[in-house]
Design a binder for these strands. Structure first.
Lengths: 206, 206
DNA sequence: ATAGAATTTGACCATGCGGTCAGAATCGCC
DNA sequence: GGCGATTCTGACCGCATGGTCAAATTCTAT
């Protein structure tokens, strides 16, 4: 069973199946969306019966949560690595955004899958299951980078919260664009965004 | 029936029911999301049987399409009015964005409902039903406003397509924020966005 | 009053969903 | 080779969905 707390050692089959199924769930979600990603469809793509999926995951909800954790972890590592190499606030903001967009480019389906889950999975009461209320940790993290730059006087004056919301909106729209429009050029988009961000954070007159 | 082409004159009951049901569909979509907005749930909120909904609309798909048309029409009118009063390219861009964000603020549920439909409704093959491929007319329209400003030399040099994608991303994120975070201040967000847009379009050095 | 159209209901249908489970197959190990 | 644990299947369950329909009700106009 999945929920044994002292999970001694996962079998070879177990870890292989789990990552295979997570991979198929990601592909399914990104290709046919949240409502099209049924257990049966995910199992079909993995060439496995529905029962197998529920043998390795407690429920569909559990599977989707594992997908979110899996992608978030990998994205977080990529960004954290990049952030560690930056010293100034400007370099951190630049690195954060570049690493973020680069991950979107190299893992488009993964990002798309998480977006599908996060924006659609709901609690019985109708509220979104992830980001339960008010504060979004991802947003708060980026907002803090902006505030740091203001505190060190490296940046100018601006409303850090609003600017953070705005820039994150510009970043989050990229995964959708990449899927909807094959001719979308992520590299030039990244350059354009970086330029605008530079202008925005360095302005001196409020 | 609904599909009679020469629809002589809609009954009082008919137009009243249609707009009532569209209103309930909007409320349902914005509160419980796409997957929670079943025909039964929409009918329940309208205090009417499922059959009534399908008596006035050919199918659920038809109802959702009418919702999109209804909201798009109203939003388009509000924006068009504002745009007509602007002469310079700068005023047009400013007016377009302000009118857009204002509509989001005064019709949050409507915008939310359309976002739910547009991002989730899919064709049998899995592709999104709305915005079928590549070009998004809303995006193209705004992009043209930017190009006009460049052509008249009123704006500086920038990649119009990428900047349009970016700004629309920043605008589209607002409806989500308004619902997720009650303390989100749309007015100050609008001001911040306008300031950044000014900086972005007027820059002279590429 | 009454005929005919418009409106509404509620029972019904096929389908697909997430999830369960008994049993069969397969594996790892002594 | 055989035994216990792991893995897997496929039939099955209850339920919700979008949609149909005959019949009942309510309007409208003569």
């Amino acid at each position: 069973m999945r929920s044994e707390s002292p999970d001694k050692a996962p079998t070879f089959t177990e870890s292989a199946r789990r990552s295979q199924i997570i991979g198929c769930a990601i592909a399914t979600l990104s290709e046919v969306g949240y409502s099209g990603a049924s257990l049966a469809e995910i199992a079909r793509r993995a060439q496995v019966s529905k029962g197998v999926v529920l043998y390795y995951f407690d429920s569909k909800d559990d599977l989707l949560q594992q997908v979110v954790i899996d992608v978030y972890t990998r994205a977080g590592e990529a960004i954290e690595t990049r952030l560690a190499a930056a010293s100034t606030a400007g370099a951190k903001v630049t690195g954060y955004l570049e690493a973020n967009l680069q991950f979107v480019g190299t893992h488009t389906a993964d990002v798309r899958a998480v977006v599908e889950i996060v924006t659609n999975a709901r609690r019985p009461d109708g509220g979104l299951k992830f980001s339960p209320e008010g504060e979004d940790p991802v947003l708060a993290h980026f907002e803090q980078l902006l505030r740091d730059g203001q505190a060190s006087n490296e940046f100018g004056s601006f409303d850090a919260h609003n600017l953070a919301v705005m820039i994150r909106g510009a970043v989050d729209t990229a995964s959708g664009r990449l899927i909807a429009d094959p001719s979308f050029d992520l590299e030039s988009y990244t350059r354009e965004l970086m330029t605008v961000v530079e202008l925005a954070v360095h302005r001196r007159s409020p």
